[in-house]
């Protein structure tokens, strides 16, 4: 229950219509270094992928 509450209190009421970008005050951790296998997805051309995804998003998830 506590966890659920924290999720919903974390919901912000202040929404600034124009400033929808990353907040500078992020949580910071001391991360470990990834020790697993390389993901081939990371080798692919990301900008091209971003472009494809953008099209897909417009097609599939907007109200047309």
């Amino acid at each position: 229950m506590t966890r659920l509450l924290s999720l919903f209190t974390g919901v912000s009421l202040a929404f600034i219509v124009s400033g929808c970008y990353e907040s500078p005050s992020v949580t910071s951790y001391e991360p470990g270094v990834y020790k697993g296998a390389k993901d081939p997805l990371m080798q692919a051309n990301k900008d091209q992928r971003a472009e494809t995804m953008k099209k897909r998003f417009e097609m599939v998830q907007t109200d047309r």
Partner: peptide, 23 residues
Amino acid sequence: MKLIKKRGANASTAAPGLGEAID
């Protein structure tokens, strides 16, 4: 040992998960 710094409200608890609260 890892250092975990979090903001108060989001501190993890031993609650068994999101689903527990609900419907």
